[in-house]
Design a protein around this nucleic acid. Structure first.
Length: 400
DNA sequence: TCTGGGGTCCTAGGACCC
DNA sequence: TCTGGGGTCCTAGGACCC
């Protein structure tokens, strides 16, 4: 989609159309999560803080984002795409891949299919999107970005080589600033274009970049063997976590512990809702100077219990000497296992599960933190999450 | 009135085991 | 009389994506 959150807001509120709009979060320390094309003309970009964005564009209109709204629109768009192919992989809240191999009899050649798809999405949502068509996901993804907004680019297999030849390696999906800089130091002149990358010696790339290096050369040649994997064939999540940049930095461990309990409850509740449990609890801290680090602890058995998660994270906190005030706290549970959790054996375990179930049920009906732990009751505030909730069920399903 | 929040995959070193 | 070789699990950190 084009400037997705901002476009949704402009669609909902005609007064915003034609004006520079930045979608932001609720807290004071928020950043721009989407900028309308009018705002981009002034240099407003995703990731800027409010102050930077306002400096770039004094007339900028800030709109508080509404994740639920974006997820609803996203789900409607995916349903439209699924009418064109059974093989649709939602990649993010506003992107999807569709394998349209063999649909020509129904929808005509790819360009015609893409035109129909764009029209249907516009009818359904009032929003424009940009479609890229290529022989694989890598090329299709790049093609989709070449004519934004409202683009439609078809890259035929025979034109891939010419397209890649002078393209900056940084344009490739999967090559970021670090890899781009490292590539520039290879050989005498450095590797800067996809053409050069495609001709680089595979062994040099492998030695320098390891597993990634084994794919780099093929990426430079525009080759990609990845399949389009629909949601019902995808593996379940490997970690579930929450983090929070605090309204103001905290210096005391007691105050950080309160945040840990809140984050643990959010992570635990989400895991319980989806029948997940994990063994490794990690605590992430970010200091005032932005130095960020994490420490983790692996438990004997998987858990989805708020208190077990929180006590593990607090134990980790206990082993850290705080070097300065803390601006961000994060709690993540990983090591998530597929098999169902062991049934409670003892009476106290049953009672604990009953309690959590009752709390989840109340909170599911009346909102997060309606019923919660006394130690965090006075300091709630729990906006909904985006990823991976754009997966319609909140997590990916596995085919049984 | 300085810089969000959700993830994935990979690496390297150490502990531990046979 | 000083150092093999296979493996797994755990931890911390980095790169990358939207």
């Amino acid at each position: 989609m084009d400037a997705f959150f901002a476009s949704v807001e402009q669609r909902c509120d005609p007064a915003l159309r034609g004006r520079p709009v930045a979608v932001v979060g609720r807290s004071a320390r928020t950043v721009v999560t989407a900028a309308s094309y009018e705002a981009r003309e002034y240099g407003v970009r995703t990731g800027m803080n409010r102050y930077e964005a306002a400096c770039a564009c004094p007339r900028l209109v800030f709109v508080e984002g509404d994740n639920r709204k974006y997820m609803d629109v996203s789900a409607r768009i995916i349903r439209v795409i699924e009418a064109f192919s059974p093989l649709v992989e939602q990649y993010s809240i506003d992107e999807a891949f569709a394998d349209v191999t063999g649909t020509e009899g129904l929808f005509g050649p790819p360009r015609a299919l893409a035109a129909s798809l764009k029209r249907r999405i516009l009818e359904e949502t009032g929003l424009t999107c940009s479609v890229g068509i290529g022989p694989n996901k890598l090329i299709a993804k790049m093609a989709s970005g070449m004519e934004k907004p409202d683009g439609l680019v078809v890259v035929a297999p025979e034109s891939v080589a010419a397209l890649m030849e002078d393209l900056d390696v940084g344009e490739l999906w999967g090559i970021g600033a670090a890899t781009r800089a490292a590539l520039a130091t290879i050989g005498e002149n450095g590797v800067r274009t996809c053409g050069e990358l495609g001709r680089a010696h595979p062994e040099v790339l492998r030695r320098r970049f390891g597993a990634v290096g084994e794919r780099l050369g093929r990426m430079g040649r525009g080759q990609d063997a990845a399949m389009v994997v629909p949601a019902d064939e995808q593996a379940g999540p490997k970690s579930v976590g929450h983090s929070k940049t605090l309204a103001r930095d905290l210096s005391s461990k007691r105050a950080v512990e309160t945040e840990i309990l809140k984050l643990s409850e959010k992570a635990g509740a989400r895991m319980r809702r989806h029948g997940l449990a994990g063994r490794t609890v990690s605590l992430t801290l970010r200091y005032t100077d932005f130095h960020t680090f994490s420490r983790q602890r692996t438990l004997p058995a998987p858990t989805d219990d708020t208190r077990e998660i929180a006590s593990a994270a607090c134990a980790v906190l206990g082993s850290v000497r705080l070097r300065s005030a803390v601006r961000l706290v994060g709690v993540t549970v990983s090591g998530i296992t597929d098999h169902a959790r062991q049934l409670p054996l003892f009476e106290h375990e049953r009672r604990r599960e009953d309690l959590l179930r009752a709390m989840d049920s109340v909170n599911g009906r009346f909102g997060d933190f309606t019923l919660t732990w006394g130690s965090i009751a006075r300091s709630v505030g729990a906006p909904g999450v985006i990823p991976p909730s754009w997966r319609r069920s909140g997590v990916r399903r596995t085919r049984a």
